[in-house]
Design a protein around this nucleic acid. Sequence first.
DNA 1: GGGACGAGTATACGCTCGTTTACTAGCCGC
DNA 2: GCGGCTAGTAAACGAGCGTATACTCGTCCC
Lengths: 193, 193
Amino acid sequence: MRDMEAPVKDARPRDREATRQRLLSAARALFAEHGYEQVTVRQIAAAADANIALVGRYFGSKAGLFGAVLAGEPTVLQVIDGDPEGLVHRLAEYAAARMHADPESPILRSVERSAGDPEIRALVRERLHSTVVAKLSEQLDGPDVAARARMATAVFLGVGLIRRLIGPIEATPADVRRLTAVFEACLAEEPDN
Amino acid sequence: MRDMEAPVKDARPRDREATRQRLLSAARALFAEHGYEQVTVRQIAAAADANIALVGRYFGSKAGLFGAVLAGEPTVLQVIDGDPEGLVHRLAEYAAARMHADPESPILRSVERSAGDPEIRALVRERLHSTVVAKLSEQLDGPDVAARARMATAVFLGVGLIRRLIGPIEATPADVRRLTAVFEACLAEEPDN
DNA sequence: GGGACGAGTATACGCTCGTTTACTAGCCGC
DNA sequence: GCGGCTAGTAAACGAGCGTATACTCGTCCC
């Protein structure tokens, strides 16, 4: 009973694609939670149990990795698609969920935190527009479609931001009703007041 | 006509308080525009035309300087005080102004950008609560006062964030009307839907 | 007028960052 | 079985950061 095949640290098969995916998903989680600038490539590599240099090799740079994360996201929020009838309610439910903890939407999360580098900002802006604002606009009729979609998006961002700042908030049924009214006001063709 | 009293670089009188104020106002402008982490003490010192070491001497540290900036702000947003009747409209006007460019409110601006350091986050959170959420709550009646104030604050944050991301937006009269409706929905005692 | 206090300065320290380079070692075709 | 391609590694680089130290020099009191 010697140490034949007793590798305490089990060797992982050398698999380029698998390693790439580990880095990608580690980066997705960390960027989503903390934002671009707050996450270091060393953290990402450690979380992915990979070597630092592989970030450079597989994605060119930290910014490249971030771009790959954004590009790999599902292109549409599930909540936006579907019948326009229940849209505002779905939006409200989703925003309420965001008050407590972020559902899986790294794009929105990234926006709240990633700001400094202009290159990164451009990436995020493009992505936010194409996946949220544009998709939301498609569901709307009437004038000022872009402005209305943008305002609803702003509410999403604000809710996420305040949660991140003051901590998780338990969304009550009254909160959901209020959010529904808020999104209705955001998306209304002509505000009534 | 020799170089008697011809100092090309005019000497500034040595004035501790004046220098402190220059640093403070330079820091206020830079933090507000770019957020805490994106601004270096070297930038602040350069903008204030002062030496780097003076930041440490007068404020202890970069975080101390940031705290001084927050503390030096007028404690209440003008828009919140006043008759509760026109509150939502004043909020809407203010938010609309934020869509185009930030009015003087470093607190809100800081929130959008300053996230990483827990110490800084605590500072911002405390300040945001005492100057915005709490003050707004005072103007409200009925249940869920804090939740309603928080939601209105979230809209502020979101509007500022999206402006910072996609650039200045010209707020139309329709935007103002929409924002008024949004704030009404945020602050309503019981949402009607 | 001379000395001391303090505003302002120059510079360096220690650290962390993203990135790069030179190397090691596993696998596959021959 | 072995040479070469390549996934993976270790270490270092240069830059930038916040901060600390040792200094210069203007100003004011005696």
